[in-house]
């Protein structure tokens, strides 16, 4: 593998210790970083990331709550997509990256020894910026994950169920054989969501899922995100602050300034973040003064 992983907290003993209720403050040093209630889906601490020698994340630490929508916002180049891709090890695919720090998913260290990135990505699904259906039929798009995983149940049911959950079934049930590329942009994106859901993940990561869509398609996806949050943990990267305000329960604001690249400035329940930001830079950003 072409990545170097330096986990600062790799041993099982320490992992167990962490589970047995170490004080959360140790992970979240800044007073502007809120610790959400309950057991987190992800627990990130001291995360640093480099592309080659170029640092992209600096000492990021936050807890992402379960079955809630967490938005990552910030101006472009702030590292929000990089952070998202650290959560399912998509960054492993880029040659020459270095990851240092600790990313825990429920109890397990995602970068721990013996952890298989394929297993990670099977549980933590992803939806991308540009809708990217495979050049295959709608049916085969949704069935892809099941087929590679050797799914033994009823594939037709799985495809139908996933398309229904992604609010696409009614529009495509007449012709599942047509190419996924024949759909409109918004439908394609929902197809990609259905495809991710078919894998039965716990978490869905979304990397600016609406940035290539028109306003109506965007609204549909946002509704869908709200709906899915009852069953799934969702992390969504967006540079659209209204979107973050509309769909998310928690919001993390990231920033790259002259000295530090990819730092987490503030993390709080969305309502609080948008009404009474704790940091001047957050306020400047959400009031549109830069970015």
């Amino acid at each position: 593998m072409s990545i170097r992983v330096r986990s600062t907290n790799p041993t099982d003993d320490e992992a167990r210790e962490a589970l047995q209720g170490r004080p959360a403050e140790e992970h979240v040093p800044s007073h502007n970083i809120t610790k959400p209630e309950g057991e987190p889906a992800f627990s990130i601490s001291d995360l640093n990331f480099w592309y080659g020698t170029k640092q992209a994340l600096t000492n990021v630490g936050l807890d992402i709550p379960r079955k809630k929508v967490t938005a990552l916002i910030g101006p472009s180049g702030c590292g929000k997509s990089t952070l998202l891709r650290c959560l399912n090890r998509m960054n492993d695919l880029i040659p020459g990256v270095t990851i240092e720090g600790n990313v825990r998913y429920r109890s397990a260290d995602i970068y721990g020894p013996g952890v298989d990135p394929v297993e990670v990505r099977r549980r933590i699904g992803m939806v991308f910026q540009k809708p990217n259906p495979f050049p295959k039929s709608i049916y085969e798009n949704v069935a892809f994950g099941a087929r590679v995983n050797g799914f033994r149940g009823n594939l037709d049911d799985l495809v139908e169920g996933s398309l229904q959950r992604a609010a696409l079934w009614d529009e495509v049930k007449g012709d599942l054989k047509q190419s996924g590329l024949a759909l409109s942009g918004g439908q394609q994106q929902r197809l990609c969501i259905a495809r991710a859901l078919a894998n039965n993940p716990d978490v869905i990561l979304m990397d600016e899922p609406c940035s290539a869509l028109d306003p109506i398609a965007t609204l549909k996806i946002e509704d869908l995100i709200r709906e899915l949050s009852t069953d799934y943990t969702i992390v969504v990267v967006t540079h659209n602050m209204q979107q973050a305000a509309r769909v998310s329960d928690y919001t993390a604001f990231m920033l790259t300034d002259e000295e530090i690249t990819g730092q987490l400035i503030e993390y709080a329940p969305t309502e609080m973040m948008f009404t009474q930001p704790g940091d001047q830079r957050t306020e400047d950003y959400i009031s549109g003064r830069f970015g």
Binding site: L93, R121, F128, N132, F144, C192, R195
Partner: peptide, 15 residues
């Protein structure tokens, strides 16, 4: 072949 397609597949847990 666009990188997107590879990412989509890797994202679904393909080897």
């Amino acid at each position: 072949v666009p990188r997107d397609l590879r990412e989509a597949a890797y994202g679904l847990g393909a080897t």
